[in-house]
Design a binder for these strands. Structure first.
Length: 104
DNA sequence: CAACTGACGATAG
DNA sequence: CCTATCGCCAGTT
């Protein structure tokens, strides 16, 4: 086992399917470190373009976009809506429908 | 090498 | 429901 958390996290992020979202905690957990949510953030910042990651499919544990208004929030929301994802009353995503489940 | 930085998460009050 | 705080950890400064 040599794969670093980062490399695996990147692979996993790339596997999040169209029309679905994943949480930072999920990525971290599936990458082997349930406490690595912060590292996922770093990856999205440093490798989203480089590795062509679907960064907009990653949201926080509440089902909300974590970015601030005027700083990508609107962009991410529109990108997700284009994939058919709907936002609830509090701009919250319904995990029952849209949360990515690697097992099916 | 110490301090800082994050698009987080869980917990406590 | 909300704010405050702590823990986590790799990459930067």
């Amino acid at each position: 086992m040599v794969s670093s958390f980062s490399k695996r996290a990147i692979e996993i992020i790339k596997r999040v399917p169209f029309g679905k979202v994943a949480t930072y905690g999920q990525i971290a957990t599936y990458s082997g470190n349930s406490r690595g949510a912060r590292q996922v953030v770093r990856l999205l910042n440093s490798s989203s373009e480089k590795e062509d990651l679907p960064w907009f499919r990653i949201v926080n544990s509440k089902g909300n976009i974590s970015l601030k208004h005027g700083n990508g929030y609107e962009l991410q929301k529109s990108l997700l809506e284009k994939e058919g994802i709907e936002f609830g009353k509090n701009d919250k995503i319904d995990f029952d429908i849209y949360l990515w489940k690697p097992l099916g």
